[in-house]
């Protein structure tokens, strides 16, 4: 099994990325590269689907912090969805829901983008 992989689809002008495996100090650079790719394509509206993610540490949280400001200043956002309880718990421990939009499912995250247009 791969340690960490990302798949992607484009829908309604959004990039929806699906995280699979574990996100730690060893694998977080894969996510960083994906955000760099999206930036290069001026794809600033991003939904991140966590349904296939089994684990996250601060290295993973750091990647979202590193890109949220840039996406928002380009009229985009990084919206997070479909987290398991244990993953949400890690985001919640440090108060990330204050800054990030975290929704239960993907459709809700997509709707939030269309609502804000």
């Amino acid at each position: 099994m791969d340690e960490f992989t990302i798949t992607e689809k484009k829908q309604d002008g959004l990039a929806i990325i699906y995280l699979n495996g574990f996100l730690d100090a060893h694998t977080s650079n894969v996510l960083e590269k994906k955000f760099e790719e999206l930036l290069a394509l001026k794809s600033f509206k991003i939904v991140v689907n966590f349904s296939g993610l089994t684990y996250i540490s601060s290295a993973g949280l750091g990647v979202f912090m590193a890109y949220i400001e840039t996406m928002r200043s380009n009229e985009g956002d990084i919206k997070l969805c479909s987290m398991s309880d244990k993953i949400f718990n890690i985001f919640d421990m440090l108060g990330f829901p204050v800054l990030f939009n975290i929704t239960k499912d993907e459709n809700e995250a997509i709707t939030k983008f269309t609502e804000s247009v």
Partner: peptide, 11 residues
């Protein structure tokens, strides 16, 4: 301030 890093020890 959209800071990055330094969350390992707090966590």
């Amino acid at each position: 301030k959209f800071k990055v890093g330094g969350l390992g020890i707090p966590l």
